[in-house]
Design a protein around this nucleic acid. Structure first.
Lengths: 337, 337
DNA sequence: CTTTAAAATGTAAACGTTTAGATTAAGCGC
DNA sequence: GCGCTTAATCTAAACGTTTACATTTTAAAG
């Protein structure tokens, strides 16, 4: 393949200067129709395509935004990404998404890459909320919005969901249904979702005069394995809970798996509710009661905030958006017969 | 924030020329240790970070690869992506992933964007195998590898899974189990996976002397809705199948949903097997028998092929890799009692 | 046919690197 | 101290755009 045609090649062929070509390529107007026609013809004949790299170089903007999530494989994040993507492309920005697999080092690498490569904005769900690994990036003054996990120490916008509120609703619902000994599988307590959901749990119990049983508070890491283990744990205790609330979708899966193995039957022996919906939930028997979030919407909002920040560069509003989740009641939380 | 420091700022501060700084930044050696120390100090003080855009401009390579999938939300693709990502980053390349939502127009837009922006290679599962929308991109001579859906008309490497083979195995298994009237929910017949899996189905029937019943061949579009509808269809026929083979994970989900609604019970009234595993499958009761593929591996291989092509630019080997799937037998295909 | 304003086009300097090729410095044997 | 070789460093030209600013062309007005 012959080398790519440049704007100069086009200019020569159309007998004009590069400036004029640039003007038509960018649809800036102010060029005589017949000249324009000539240029367009030349562009087609040479199958010229403008070099965005050179363009970015002088423009000092890339029309590109970075998106960092911990796990692209988690339906929650892939939905959020999908929402961001749609909004961004719509607005003429191109999202570059990468997944950190919850690896801090990798996150840092990616950040550095973004810094070198140049992005106009960043949407991030960090692997660690309180790390210092973001410091370097933050120096760049590139607009950032944090999704799902806030970055309190920095001046960034934040898009969250009502974690506490959602958990509160779910647990309250369990209580209403008549469950009393409700265990929770928590997420990491150094993450906002983990902590806040736990708080919601506590609040719901307290509001109903039920003391928090330390034995019923189990720690997980948002991964399937921990949900599994903790249920096995709970089952081995002398006093077993009569319901379980799991703090995220993956742990719910693990929990259910364990219950199956133990023949600890939902609907007969135990009630269940979890945070975050997941396809599976509707296919289980019984179907799972979950706190559900409009994930694509979350992504769209995140982009909207980012765009806003990118437009008015200097100003730092530090906005926060909290999307209320909704409780989807299915069979797993029905009172035991 | 003050503007970014450039290599020249560093050079001035360290009292050397930009060339020398470049050498240390790129670790090319040939610079006196004490000079290097001075430069590194300057870099840190100015918190200089090299501008990849300018770099790409002169180097004419971006160390970036494009990845296009139809649906990032489909676990199959997010796993493949994950595999590509890991391999790419490992090799010093940065993947830029975008999802087309099976939209041809969007795919074209993305391609154009890639062309402008410059990528060193492309991994693609196209939304339409026989479109002409790839022509423009192909002119660029950027290496391409097709995943899951081949691009026969072009000179590209291909990474596939044994579609026919997998379907053949699954259907044969159903037959062995004693099912006779096996229906298939096909994928689009203008896509390789859709067509090939159907062929596998036919082959398995024929190998066992079972005629293909036109009434048992249903057309779907790989989306949940079509699986759902086709099962309802099948159920309404005078002569119902005693087993269903679904051509992909999403349609399986829809199919199962319909069966539930109809109280057409797997294990009692009907047998089931599907192509592609999905988390859900193991959580269903009964658990689903599926053709499973090592998706991350598929992604890793794809990158490997791409890297190979990127290295030796000119040569066009046109290689093809076919990953054999494996049949995971669970309860849904058990002989009816 | 001038004059003058507006429209169209051209010129050339940036943008921040990399990299041949040129130049200078350093080290060594005598 | 003089060549000579090798190491270290520098110079300056790319790379392909965009864009102020300058220049030319065109059209309208007189």
């Amino acid at each position: 393949m012959k080398k790519k045609a440049t704007i100069l090649d086009v200019a020569r062929k159309a007998n004009v200067s590069s400036a004029t070509v640039s003007r038509v390529v960018n649809a800036q107007g102010g060029v005589k129709p017949e000249t324009e026609a000539r240029i367009i013809k030349a562009i087609e004949e040479l199958s010229y395509v403008r070099n965005a790299i050179a363009r970015s170089m002088v423009r000092k903007e890339t029309k590109t935004i970075g998106v960092i999530v911990p796990d692209i494989t988690n339906p929650f994040f892939s939905q959020v990404i999908s929402g961001v993507e749609e909004a961004a492309i719509q607005a003429g920005f191109f999202p570059i998404v990468t997944s950190t697999r919850e690896d801090l080092l990798l996150e840092q690498q990616i950040l550095t890459h973004y810094l070198e490569r140049g992005i106009d904005g960043l949407i991030i769900t960090t692997a660690q909320e309180n790390g210092t690994h973001l410091n370097e990036f933050m120096k760049s003054s590139i607009p950032v919005v944090a999704v799902d996990r806030p970055l309190k120490q920095y001046d960034v916008d934040t898009v969250l969901s009502g974690n506490r509120e959602g958990a509160f609703e779910a647990v309250s619902h369990l209580i209403e249904e008549g469950f009393k000994d409700i265990a929770i599988i928590r997420g990491p307590q150094n993450t906002t979702p983990g902590l806040e959901r736990y708080k919601g749990y506590v609040k719901a119990l307290e509001a109903n005069g039920i003391p928090v049983q330390p034995d019923f508070v189990c720690d997980g890491d948002f991964m399937q394995g921990s949900g599994y283990e903790q249920v096995k744990n709970l089952y081995s205790q002398k006093r077993k809970p009569d319901a379980v609330f799991s703090s995220n979708n993956f742990m719910s899966l693990g929990a259910i798996r364990a219950m199956r193995e133990l023949d600890w039957k939902i609907g007969r022996d135990i009630g269940f509710a979890g945070f975050d919906d997941i396809e599976v939930a509707t296919f289980m028997e019984p179907a799972l009661t979950v706190v559900s979030r409009r994930m694509k919407h979350l992504g769209a909002i995140a982009f909207q905030y980012l765009e806003n920040r990118m437009e008015k560069k200097g100003e730092s509003a530090k906005r926060e958006y909290i999307l209320s989740p909704s409780l989807v009641i299915r069979d797993s939380s029905k009172r035991l017969r």
